[in-house]
Design a protein around this nucleic acid. Structure first.
Lengths: 144, 144
DNA sequence: CTCTCTGCAAAGCATTTGCACATTG
DNA sequence: CAATGTGCAAATGCTTTGCAGAGAG
């Protein structure tokens, strides 16, 4: 992801390009599925004093503009990542590891269903949950 | 959904069939996408004094046994419903109304992707988010 | 009778928000 | 300079939990 593209995205919107927002974008650039807390740490490493509130506010704006994709499924903290290309998520129910996957055909189905219901501004996300190879190999009573 | 089936499900497990659990099952029987709070109200109408903690504990057990399906997407409260048949969800981003939809073809795709990754015990859920007809008709600056 | 469950209230966690000051364009 | 963004800390909302007494099998 080019930072210029990102900056442009921000600039085209009614939002200002601040140091903090640039830092959040940089933090997102080289990682996937980061929690707000992790992003805060990354941003603080180069800019101490940034607050968690700002991280959340920024992430929300970025999501609104379409630069960030959020994975929020189940009770735990949401995960954020740069919106590079549409993809879906494979989540291990045991170790909670998230993997990006392509799943062609979903777009068509989702749009059909949504348009049929009269919905507009359609988005969709498929979460596939299961037990990954590694976790499947671990006996139930294994001591961690 | 037959209550007997449900009871059997509970009995087959290591869990006891208490008045509260039966009441939660009854509350779920004739509704969809209920929040824990709503379920609490319903249960209390016939059994005052039940606590929210018990509702959550019960719902979690029912989910574990497979009698209840949970929809938990984004920040707001989770929604619970009896696990009748596999379906997906259409969520209005404005009014948060949830609708069940069928989406054939997803099962195949999800299984292919997951098996390809070596996953087992596969489950999946597709959430389609958009703006419903009603909300699309409301102008942005409408005064509520 | 023993083991599990419940109500209560407090705690926990992720996220949001009000406010006065700092910063951007 | 006017409008927007930020840090801080308190508030919120949903969910979980410890505990002592109640209930199921």
């Amino acid at each position: 992801m080019e930072l210029k593209t990102v900056d442009a995205g921000l600039l085209q919107s009614r939002y200002r390009l601040t140091k903090q927002r640039a830092a959040v974008l940089r933090a997102l650039g080289d990682g996937t599925h980061l929690s707000a807390e992790t992003i805060l740490e990354r941003v603080r490493s180069e800019m101490p004093g940034v607050s968690l509130g700002t991280i959340y506010r920024t992430l929300d704006i970025l999501r609104e503009i379409g630069l960030v994709q959020v994975f929020s499924h189940g009770g735990s903290a949401a995960r954020y990542e740069a919106a590079l290309e549409k993809h879906h998520h494979l989540l291990c129910s045991e170790c909670k590891q998230l993997t990006n996957v392509q799943a062609d055909g979903i777009a068509q189905i989702a749009h059909d269903v949504a348009e049929n219901a009269g919905f507009s501004q359609i988005d969709y996300s498929l979460a596939i949950v299961g037990k990954c190879l590694t976790c499947a190999a671990i006996p139930k009573n294994a001591v961690t």
